[in-house]
Simulated assay, not measured.
Amino acid sequence: MSVAIVTDSTASLGPDDAERERITVVPLQVVIGADVYTEGVDVTSDMIAEALAAFVPVNTSRPTPDDFLAAYEQLAADGAAAIVSVHLSAKMSGTLDSAVLASKQASVPVTCVDTMQVGIATGFAAGRAARVRDAGGDALAVADAARMAGESSTTMLYVDTLEYLKRGGRVGAAAALIGSALAVKPLLTLRDGLVVPLERVRTTAKALSRLEALAVEACEACSDGYDVGVQHLANESAADAVAQRLATTLGRDALDVDEVGAAIGAHVGPGMVSVTVTPRE
């Protein structure tokens, strides 16, 4: 293995997917009340949703530079000559900063990539990097593939309330929506690595319908194909319905639906439904 790929647990890669793609996942920490958990190990999205609903404080903590360095050194010991480390937006988390600090101490060259995205969009970027590596690409080509995937992705979110994003300081320009009429259901997107307003819709049903329409537009704009995924937190029935309707419109048998990881779930809150579209280039 000449080029190894690392990402963080917010990328929503399950253990089977990570193993198949040969991607190393470094987990974030999730703090519920006074208890500290490791994402992907001993905390579930259901635990996050229940804690938030009960007004139990929930916070997240980035991996330390030592966490990343340990992963890098293990990969080097396993034969990696170079590493590409692919992470969520640096404007949303200090995870990339930890990776960069660790890269300066690693025994092999490490290129850190800011996808400017969150959730499965980061996972798609890491997966794109893996495919370029498997096709024989060098570290530069692998990093460029991840960066381009992140930059070209469209991530759209429906949230029941902005309260959880506000608590975690992740609301960005969408803060302008706070204090709007309670009936407003915000649609959000990622732009330049920050959560920003996309549209305001009056009801949940109309918001989800609009989410579907915007996702179809994003898919139809991809001339060379696309990857698309649906995620949710404690809103499986709505996410399944969105995925089924999207699949029918896009002419696919089905779309993958996943519950968002605990770290992201802590900030978006129960009820969230998102759609991510990443063009294939």
Results as ranks from 00 to 15, higher is better:
residue 175 A to I: 06
residue 173 A to F: 03
residue 122 T to A: 10
residue 144 D to M: 08
residue 87 H to D: 05
residue 92 M to Y: 07
residue 105 Q to D: 12
residue 116 M to L: 12
residue 93 S to H: 03
residue 91 K to Q: 13
residue 85 S to P: 05
residue 85 S to E: 04
residue 126 A to L: 05
residue 125 A to H: 10
residue 171 V to T: 11
residue 175 A to G: 09
residue 123 G to C: 00
residue 159 V to Q: 07
residue 162 L to E: 00
residue 167 R to G: 09
residue 154 T to K: 05
residue 112 C to W: 03
residue 153 S to F: 01
residue 140 L to G: 15
residue 107 S to T: 14
residue 155 T to L: 12
residue 155 T to E: 10
residue 172 G to C: 08
residue 167 R to Y: 11
residue 152 S to W: 01
residue 167 R to W: 05
residue 127 G to E: 09
residue 130 A to P: 14
residue 174 A to R: 14
residue 86 V to M: 11
residue 155 T to K: 01
residue 114 D to E: 10
residue 143 A to C: 13
residue 93 S to Q: 07
residue 146 A to F: 11
residue 129 A to V: 03
residue 145 A to S: 13
residue 147 R to V: 10
residue 105 Q to A: 10
residue 148 M to R: 12
residue 165 L to R: 08
residue 103 S to I: 05
residue 151 E to W: 09
residue 139 A to W: 09
residue 157 L to Y: 14
residue 79 G to H: 09
residue 165 L to T: 05
residue 91 K to V: 08
residue 95 T to N: 07
residue 150 G to D: 08
residue 123 G to N: 03
residue 83 I to P: 15
residue 114 D to K: 11
residue 111 T to I: 15
residue 167 R to A: 01
residue 132 V to H: 03
residue 135 A to G: 07
residue 156 M to V: 06
residue 170 R to W: 12
residue 151 E to P: 04
residue 144 D to P: 04
residue 110 V to I: 03
residue 175 A to T: 07
residue 154 T to H: 11
residue 104 K to I: 01
residue 111 T to Q: 15
residue 109 P to A: 09
residue 169 G to D: 02
residue 138 D to W: 07
residue 132 V to Y: 02
residue 145 A to E: 13
residue 88 L to C: 13
residue 173 A to Q: 15
residue 154 T to A: 04
residue 112 C to G: 07
residue 136 G to T: 05
residue 127 G to A: 10
residue 166 K to T: 12
residue 168 G to Y: 07
residue 118 V to R: 00
residue 118 V to T: 11
residue 169 G to T: 01
residue 121 A to E: 07
residue 133 R to M: 04
residue 170 R to E: 08
residue 92 M to T: 06
residue 156 M to G: 01
residue 161 T to Y: 04
residue 141 A to N: 01
residue 163 E to F: 01
residue 156 M to P: 06
residue 154 T to E: 06
residue 172 G to V: 04
residue 92 M to Q: 13
residue 130 A to R: 13
residue 94 G to C: 05
residue 141 A to G: 05
residue 80 A to E: 00
residue 81 A to I: 01
residue 99 A to T: 04
residue 150 G to E: 09
residue 155 T to S: 13
residue 98 S to N: 02
residue 130 A to H: 14
residue 89 S to D: 02
residue 142 V to Y: 01
residue 110 V to S: 09
residue 129 A to S: 14
residue 166 K to Q: 09
residue 108 V to K: 14
residue 126 A to D: 14
residue 87 H to I: 11
residue 137 G to W: 09
residue 148 M to D: 13
residue 135 A to K: 06
residue 122 T to M: 08
residue 106 A to E: 03
residue 164 Y to T: 13
residue 142 V to A: 05
residue 135 A to H: 03
residue 160 D to H: 12
residue 80 A to Q: 06
residue 125 A to E: 06
residue 91 K to L: 10
residue 145 A to L: 06
residue 103 S to N: 10
residue 168 G to N: 09
residue 118 V to E: 15
residue 144 D to Q: 15
residue 119 G to R: 09
residue 148 M to N: 15
residue 115 T to Q: 06
